[in-house]
Design a protein around this nucleic acid. Structure first.
Lengths: 122, 122
DNA sequence: CAGTATCCCATATGATACTG
DNA sequence: CAGTATCATATGGGATACTG
């Protein structure tokens, strides 16, 4: 079933992306080991705090979480809301742009979750 | 448009993926720097040869192309068809599983292509 | 709590040369 | 043409200690 009636889908005619173009940079941010995980964790919809993110992106070090969050924030994908209270209360959430991206990431993660055992020969 | 009427989407309730589970391994293969590019290059539909892949995954070294191809092949995502001629003629293509994955990768790449300039502040 | 600052290492990635 | 083999390097990533 689902025989492709379209033999060709010329999405990226001249090579997937020219090396060194902005798309490559963004792709690397987005597909970075922890970037995907953080984005998808936030894709649930509700803002998450630092400690929650550390738990949900299981295994992430403080250094990498900080670095990932900084990158995603400066890319305009993640919002950082720091409330001036003590102890500090900071919430991270997706920007509209980030949500848009996450919508494309989630199907990928679903696929991985569904097929990983088969692939890796669990 | 496309206002989310669903506040929560509990795709990955207990943390995106447990650290060390098969999904993490597959995710790393699939989102590896060159893995994505090779998969998407092959997503066009027609089989590609080594040299074509090198051109389309612009910037990839021979070592990394070989390694990426080996991983994707052993994951059952990419087929390798070597014809016993001289000079050698080898074609790579997606397996059904690989095509299924690529279908989820392409929308992501399209998004990246569409938004990269804005994000990186070209 | 939410980070930053350091030190350190594995390995992902790269450049080059060589081969069936 | 389609790789493999080597050598070298950058940096992604981790552990630990410290701080506003």
């Amino acid at each position: 079933m689902s025989v492709s009636s379209e033999p060709l889908r010329r999405h990226f005619p001249d090579g997937v992306f020219p090396s060194g173009c902005p798309s490559r940079v963004v792709l690397d941010h987005v597909t970075s080991k922890w970037g995907v995980l953080v984005l998808v964790a936030l894709a649930e919809g509700e803002p998450l705090r630092w400690s929650e993110l550390r738990r949900r992106a299981d295994g992430v070090s403080e250094k990498m979480l900080a670095q990932t969050l900084r990158t995603l924030h400066s890319d305009g994908l993640v919002d950082r809301d720091a409330r001036p209270v003590v102890p500090p209360h900071v919430e991270y959430s997706l920007t509209p742009l980030g949500r848009d991206l996450a919508d494309r990431l989630v199907p990928l993660m679903d696929w991985v979750a569904a097929n990983a055992a088969q692939i890796v020969g669990d």
